[in-house]
């Protein structure tokens, strides 16, 4: 891609242009980026579904049946949100982060695979090899972090909105008042 055309580039073309300059030369960076995004989405989906499953079970036990009607148990309190998110978030995102680090290591090793292009890279500025090995995994990690924050907010919103206020833990109840005002703004 010519530099002069850069202003006319679409965001996707800009992304490809950036990745082309920040991945090992000749690597299939488009495919790798798409793979990382798909894996991230799977990780995000797993984390979110794990939360939803845990949350629905936790919510179900808040109620009892009285003459065919669902009634909130007296003094019932829903499980702590940290506990509900723990399983999905603590499994999916660290696994994704480990995968990203693995991709970086594999890209670093690629300069010694099939040929010794590391000899050429050693005649370039020092950060060139590291930049080309770890820029894409770092971007993927940042995207992962952003998705984790987004999903965590979504989970909190569901937790606060969908749970009867009297069943929320005391701390959450106090905090959610401010949170809901913030969301409604």
């Amino acid at each position: 891609m010519e530099k002069t055309d850069m202003k006319k580039w679409t965001p996707v073309q800009r992304l490809w242009g950036f990745l082309e300059k920040n991945t090992p030369p000749g690597s299939n960076y488009k495919k790798l980026f798409c793979q990382l995004v798909i894996i991230l989405l799977i990780a995000g989906l797993f984390a979110f579904l794990s939360f939803l499953t845990g949350y629905s079970s936790a919510k179900r036990v808040l109620y009892t049946w009285d003459h065919g009607e669902q009634v909130l148990r007296e003094g019932a309190q829903i499980m702590d949100i940290g506990w509900l998110m723990r399983h999905g978030f603590k499994t999916a995102f660290p696994a994704y982060a480990a995968f990203c680090i693995g991709v970086g290591a594999a890209q670093l090793a690629s300069f010694r695979r099939e040929s010794r292009s590391i000899y050429l890279m050693k005649r370039l500025p020092k950060d060139e090899v590291l930049r080309r090995s770890f820029a894409l995994p770092l971007i993927a990690l940042l995207l992962g972090f952003a998705l984790a924050v987004l999903l965590a907010n979504l989970c909190v919103a569901i937790y606060v909105h969908q749970t009867p206020p009297q069943a929320l833990p005391e701390q959450v109840r106090l905090w959610s008042y401010d949170y809901l005002i913030f969301v409604k703004r």
Binding site: P24, P25, G26, S27, N28, R113, E114, S115, R116, S117, I118, Y119, L120, R123
Partner: peptide
Amino acid sequence: FATSEHSFFPGL
């Protein structure tokens, strides 16, 4: 440096 080990990028 030109080496029989090759120092080019195979995918490029």
